[in-house]
Amino acid sequence: MTSQNSFDFMQLDTAKPPQEVLDLIARGAAFVINHSGGKDSQAMYLMVRKYVPAAQIVLVHADLGEVEWAGAVQHIKSTTAGEPLHICRARRNLLEMIAERGMFPSPSQRQCTSDLKRGPIEKTIRHLGVKLIVNCMGMRAQESSGRSKLATFKLSERNSKAGREWYDWLPIHAMTTDQVFSEIAAAGQQPHWIYAAGMSRFSCCFCVMSNQADLTTAARLNPSLYRKYVDLEKSTGQVMMMPSKTHGRRTLEQITGIAA
């Protein structure tokens, strides 16, 4: 199989998946949609279901516990069509991970992604017992230079074992943020409530990839959880956010201007 690095979803009504994906649909592959409850997952589901029969769609959600925005699972259920939804959890949550390690994840060392999301999701997929799998993820090129370089379709050699044939696909890699919201609106749906409340990111309420505006909004919307992060900064002697060239090392309270 060859990788598709520039699949263009600019024309949302006429765009089709690459031929490799169409062939896998015809072969009856299970299309597993990684669904956080956020806007990108929601738009990805809407795109995939245009081409993949409902009987071939499976949803999987990594439950992040108290650090996840309220109503994630309910939002997934209300914006999908009743396909099987598998909810998985890691052995420890993010706050426990930080306390045990004595440090926060960083943009370059994101154990939160590998341990709390990717690991449990892949384990859940393996336990489905399906032998032909297309693992659908909602990363988009617009989000970062790193994500812009990702192959949008490839064989997962690491997971293609024990008789499994496993492919990773990024259905909305070429979509812009505006197109994501347009796709949701065109389906007559609304994104999760946090976007209207001022957040630009979903998943963890407080994320090491967040900007100052999102951290400030999250602190206002979820003060009890914010207090736990501030307490972890104090108990570990570390700060959650990486120092910047402009401001240097700052605590969450210094970044947001909100006292816990």
Rank of each mutant, 00 (worst) to 15 (best):
residue 127 H to L: 15
residue 128 L to V: 12
residue 128 L to F: 13
residue 128 L to C: 12
residue 128 L to G: 13
residue 129 G to A: 11
residue 129 G to T: 10
residue 131 K to A: 12
residue 131 K to Q: 14
residue 131 K to P: 05
residue 131 K to E: 08
residue 133 I to E: 03
residue 133 I to W: 09
residue 133 I to G: 09
residue 133 I to L: 14
residue 133 I to Q: 00
residue 133 I to M: 04
residue 134 V to Y: 03
residue 134 V to H: 07
residue 135 N to G: 09
residue 135 N to Q: 12
residue 135 N to C: 05
residue 136 C to Y: 03
residue 136 C to I: 08
residue 137 M to R: 12
residue 137 M to E: 12
residue 138 G to W: 02
residue 138 G to Y: 07
residue 139 M to K: 01
residue 139 M to A: 07
residue 139 M to S: 09
residue 140 R to I: 01
residue 140 R to L: 01
residue 141 A to N: 13
residue 141 A to D: 15
residue 141 A to T: 09
residue 142 Q to P: 00
residue 142 Q to K: 10
residue 143 E to I: 02
residue 144 S to Q: 06
residue 144 S to N: 11
residue 145 S to C: 03
residue 145 S to E: 10
residue 146 G to F: 07
residue 146 G to W: 06
residue 146 G to E: 08
residue 147 R to V: 08
residue 147 R to T: 10
residue 148 S to M: 01
residue 149 K to T: 09
residue 149 K to P: 00
residue 149 K to R: 14
residue 150 L to W: 08
residue 151 A to W: 04
residue 151 A to Y: 03
residue 151 A to H: 10
residue 153 F to N: 12
residue 154 K to R: 14
residue 154 K to F: 15
residue 154 K to M: 15
residue 154 K to Q: 15
residue 155 L to W: 04
residue 156 S to D: 14
residue 156 S to Q: 10
residue 157 E to K: 14
residue 157 E to D: 09
residue 157 E to T: 13
residue 157 E to V: 14
residue 157 E to W: 02
residue 157 E to A: 10
residue 158 R to F: 13
residue 158 R to I: 13
residue 160 S to G: 06
residue 160 S to K: 02
residue 160 S to A: 09
residue 161 K to R: 15
residue 162 A to Q: 13
residue 163 G to H: 07
residue 164 R to E: 00
residue 164 R to S: 00
residue 165 E to T: 14
residue 165 E to I: 13
residue 165 E to P: 00
residue 166 W to S: 00
residue 166 W to V: 14
residue 167 Y to L: 11
residue 168 D to R: 09
residue 168 D to M: 04
residue 169 W to E: 00
residue 169 W to K: 04
residue 169 W to L: 00
residue 170 L to C: 05
residue 171 P to L: 05
residue 171 P to I: 05
residue 171 P to G: 02
residue 172 I to T: 09
residue 172 I to V: 15
residue 173 H to K: 08
residue 173 H to Q: 11
residue 174 A to P: 06
residue 174 A to S: 15
residue 174 A to E: 08
residue 175 M to Y: 02
residue 175 M to T: 11
residue 175 M to G: 05
residue 175 M to N: 05
residue 175 M to R: 05
residue 176 T to D: 03
residue 177 T to Y: 00
residue 177 T to I: 04
residue 178 D to K: 11
residue 178 D to M: 06
residue 178 D to V: 08
residue 179 Q to H: 03
residue 179 Q to Y: 03
residue 180 V to N: 11
residue 180 V to W: 06
residue 181 F to W: 03
residue 181 F to T: 11
residue 181 F to N: 05
residue 182 S to E: 13
residue 183 E to W: 01
residue 184 I to H: 01
residue 186 A to R: 15
residue 186 A to D: 01
residue 186 A to C: 07
residue 186 A to Q: 12
residue 187 A to P: 04
residue 187 A to L: 01
residue 187 A to Y: 04
residue 189 Q to D: 13
residue 189 Q to N: 12
residue 191 P to W: 06
residue 191 P to L: 04
residue 191 P to C: 08
residue 191 P to Y: 08
residue 192 H to G: 08
residue 192 H to K: 04
residue 194 I to D: 02
residue 195 Y to G: 05
residue 196 A to G: 14
residue 197 A to W: 09
residue 197 A to D: 11
residue 198 G to Y: 10
residue 198 G to I: 11
residue 199 M to I: 06
residue 199 M to K: 11
